[in-house]
């Protein structure tokens, strides 16, 4: 059973989501059930099958290297929770 409490904690950290203790327990139980259900895929013989990551046979979609107008700065930053001048602001990144 891959979905231990530690797995949930690890995955929650990777996904940068804080879970309250109670939430952690409920979600880990639910995920345990879901993964147990999903495990039915092990029945399928997948030898010599190619994975489908794109359903359409499209390829080589490209654009020309031509300029398109950028956003005005006020629009680019219009939704910013925190800004300083024309920069977005975030809590200090410690290097």
């Amino acid at each position: 059973m891959p979905f231990s409490l530690d797995t949930v904690k690890y995955v929650a950290h990777l996904a940068r989501i804080e879970l309250k203790a109670q939430e952690l327990e409920i979600i880990s139980n639910q995920l345990q059930d879901i993964v147990a259900f999903i495990d039915m895929l092990r029945e399928v013989d997948i030898n010599a099958i190619n994975p489908t990551s794109h359903i359409l046979p499209l390829q080589n979609v490209l654009r020309e290297d031509t300029l398109v107008e950028s956003l005005p700065i006020e629009k680019a930053l219009g939704n910013a929770p925190e800004r300083k001048g024309s920069f977005f602001g975030v809590p200090k990144v410690i290097e």
Binding site: L41, V44, I46, I49, N50, P51, T52
Partner: peptide, 8 residues
């Protein structure tokens, strides 16, 4: 595995 079963 899911991508492969998707092909099926």
């Amino acid at each position: 595995r899911a991508l492969k079963v998707r092909t099926r």
